[in-house]
């Protein structure tokens, strides 16, 4: 069972339906007990970093997620959900994240249009089971104004180009993040979600 964490933000239905379409069992929940019982966690997210962290803390979800990840349970952070996995974000201030991975979330400093919104290309950095069947240059759908800045370059499986190298898919063992919306990225997004689901043993 894949637990999709509901903490009052965004549209979780698409992620849930995508997993079910792919043949995985999933549910949307805000109950720490359900998350403890699950085989994998999905942390979605749309909106502001600060609000999201407050919601996670308020509902004891932050602690629950940290404990489960500590026990090597798989977690996938999507969009803001990926950013929340990191130590800190500079979105309208300076806010502490879950700190499961090393790195900071910083604002685009670019002449290009912000948010970085639309279909952009993935470029592969490392082979990994998570990226199985994904060719260099496949497109995925992004919507974000901040991006990951990290020294942990070995965690970055795919980048995308938007003036700078934007980490698009990251993985450090059981901890996975996708900066784009796989549930809105057509066939490529579904392949990535399937690969994630298949990592569950």
């Amino acid at each position: 069972m894949i637990a999709i964490v509901d903490y009052g933000v965004g549209n979780l239905k698409s992620v849930n339906k995508a997993f079910q379409y792919l043949g995985f069992q999933s549910l949307i929940t805000s109950d720490p007990k359900e998350i403890d019982k699950s085989d994998a966690i999905v942390l979605p997210g749309v909106g502001a970093f600060k609000d999201a962290m407050e919601q996670l803390k308020k509902n004891d979800l932050a602690q629950c997620i940290k404990e489960n990840v500590g026990k090597k349970k798989l977690i996938l952070g999507i969009c803001l959900g990926m950013q929340l996995l990191y130590e800190k974000s500079y979105e309208d201030g300076e806010w502490e994240g879950l700190g499961l991975l090393k790195g900071e979330i910083v604002k685009f400093n670019s002449q290009l249009k912000i948010p970085h919104m639309g279909w952009n290309k993935l470029s592969k950095r490392f082979d990994d089971d998570l990226g199985r069947g994904i060719e260099d240059g496949e497109y995925v759908y992004f919507v974000h104004s901040y991006y990951l800045d990290t020294h942990a370059k070995d965690d970055i499986l795919f980048n995308t180009q938007y003036d700078v190298d934007v980490p698009a898919v990251v993985r450090n063992g059981n901890i996975i993040g996708m900066q784009f919306h796989p549930e809105k990225s057509g066939g490529t997004g579904l392949k990535l979600l399937r690969n994630f689901g298949e990592l569950i043993k």
Partner: peptide, 8 residues
Amino acid sequence: TAESVYIP
């Protein structure tokens, strides 16, 4: 529709 297509 949102349940059956995976694009925006």
